[in-house]
Amino acid sequence: MRAFTFKQVARQEEALLLSDAHAGASPGEVRFIAGGTTLVDLMKLNVERPSVVIDINRLPLDKIETTPDGGVRIGALVRNGDCAHHPLLQSRYPALSQALLSGASAQLRNMATTGGNLLQRTRCTYFRDTVWTCNKRVPGSGCSAIGGANRMLAILGASEHCIATNPSDMNVALTALEATVHLQGKEGERSVAIDEFFHRPGTTPHIENVLRPGELITAVSLPAPAPGSRSLYLKLRDRATYEFALASAAVVLTAASGRITHVRLALGGVGTVPWRAHEAEAALLGKGPSPEIFRRAAEAVLQHARPQSENGFKVELARRCITHALTTAVAGGGEQYGS
């Protein structure tokens, strides 16, 4: 691990000032640290090599509050475990709670934060090991994953420069729940819809989101749940727990008078970003729920799949994941740990 200067801040302004003081530094030189579960991991691998680390754990961003519009605002430093077990979130946004509980372990969930989870880096082996070229780690160096071991990698949203998967479960649920990400920079606050927060790799896989240098995530807010809606998260993986998804689905769905009147579907484990399945939603809206409609919805999104040498199975797996999640949502079910 590269040596670094460690700073602790107690106030938001301090954090912004400190990071601004290093504004001229190259990307990655200055890092905020919250839970540390991604950053420390990657620093040990020499993938992250900051020269300044700013501890923001003492900032007052750890509240979960209801908002006037009937939604909820989750502070960036709320730990994933607290978020998962929060009674309000459990009852009104079960997909979020299930997604969080399906991810990592209880220990990691006690550390990892809402803001940090949004910034979770890919698990792509070629990104995590500096002996390989990786456009995400070293722009322009080449993608070793294409033509390599890509079983875990993306079938949706990839480019010829990067096929890395976004590994987060939380982000998939937040996408289906149409969350908004709140940011604070030295120029002030701004809010970004979760669907616009993440960048697909394109020709710049090293730019993963809209965050500007020095900008802090302060909160994530969720709109009031759609009336009568159910939500759930289904995660498929090799073992039963403590593993990243091969395919996952977050569903928010309202069925009334035998018709689907509202639906949001997002996929995990298959996309370079948390994958909002707009075409699938369109295929479902207004239809009577049936296996055939669910299959068509799955096709609508998976027709865009471009598998690699080892992950063609993810197309069929995602198909089953989507149809099973929809079937379960309509039936009013859901698995306790999302898997």
Partner: peptide, 22 residues
């Protein structure tokens, strides 16, 4: 790297992986 749990300790009463925090 937070992948086995052998380093679990309690910080302020909550369990964490002590290998992933400074």
């Amino acid at each position: 790297h937070g992948q086995c749990g052998a380093c679990t300790v309690h910080i302020n009463g909550r369990r964490v992986n002590s290998c992933l925090t400074f």
